[in-house]
Write a protein that binds this DNA or RNA. Structure first.
Lengths: 180, 180
DNA sequence: AATTTCATGTAATTCGTTACATGATTCC
DNA sequence: GGAATCATGTAACGAATTACATGAAATT
């Protein structure tokens, strides 16, 4: 997930890690920033895989003294990285329909093929429908025995999934009329 | 989180692991069951901590032959476990306001002190409000530059958090009028 | 008797966090 | 020149998953 998000952002423009992190936090929910302990090792890994390049911070020019390796490192997506990203975006496995995976996919929908977009939206809808139905049957099954709070929680969950299904249906229709 | 959920369920009635897992999946969302690779080690840990007891499956009675240790194991909450659970439910740290933590707290609200319930609800509301405001300012800040899909995602997120805030406000009011 | 479902468990791995530590730059 | 913020990194750990493996009970 981090991988797809990093590559997706770097596809829009080159950036250094710190900035990447800020963009990452506002990408979806807004809250919960990614930690450095996970960001930098991932950047290193992507770099070793050849999907991004990291620009070494320059030594202070003519000065002969060896300098610290620290400093801003600008990361860029390579051609292989671009290709890898489009493969990742096209992978419509089960995790593409989970909250996080779906959010990440949707955030880069503009860079995703139209047929894949449709598959992602439909898969997500199926998933949310299942959740809604599970909740609904849990409520009718257990019926009266549910305590006040659990019932409230279930009702709110039910309404939320209902709304999301309607939202997705709208998006799917728009996709179909505009890009089919 | 798993710990609080297991103890909470066992506080309602003794159960074996397999059943616990089924109850766990319907507890919140409905979907995404917990895996055995996480369930059984956790049960072992809780047992070693003295919070639950695991009933050894009986050897086939009089038969002298040593039997496999396999078979249904019924888990029960101990007195220490009950106490530990109420401490856990009373811990109103940051993770009590996240999606998962809040869901787990709410699921066992009936077993939670009224003043703690209020704190949890208010903390959750604050959290969701922050998220909503972050989303809102991200939308006005970036304004037109957002692509169609990101905007849709943000709008839906905004409406969802708005609804949740209203829901929480209602719950808080009910708490205040009924239990203050 | 065979198959499915119930039931328990372990080992390796994944994906992330927290806590720690350092250095560079900007602002007052 | 001191403080805050920007910027990068490592080590230890945590909480879960997947894949594997076994066995008991119920169903057909």
């Amino acid at each position: 997930m981090l991988e797809i998000a990093i590559l997706g952002l770097l596809n829009e423009s080159p950036m250094h890690g710190y900035e990447l992190r800020k963009r990452l936090s506002t990408l979806l929910g807004g809250l919960r920033a990614i930690s450095y302990g996970s960001l930098y090792p991932t950047l290193r890994r992507l770099s070793e895989a050849g999907w991004i390049t990291e620009e070494e911070p320059l030594d202070p020019a003519a000065a002969g003294v060896a300098r610290s390796r620290r400093g801003k490192r600008v990361y860029r997506l390579t051609a292989e990285g671009k290709e890898h990203l489009s493969e990742l975006l096209a992978e419509v496995g089960p995790d593409a329909f989970e909250d996080e995976g779906f959010g990440a996919r949707l955030a880069f929908f503009a860079q995703t093929r139209a047929d894949i977009r449709l598959k992602v939206l439909e898969g997500r809808r199926r998933r949310v429908e299942e959740q809604r139905d599970g909740l609904r049957s849990a409520m009718t099954r257990t019926g009266e025995r549910l305590d006040r709070y659990t019932r409230q929680l279930h009702e709110h969950g039910l309404e939320s999934s209902d709304r999301e299904v309607r939202w997705l249906t709208e998006l799917i229709e728009q996709e179909r009329t505009h890009y089919s």
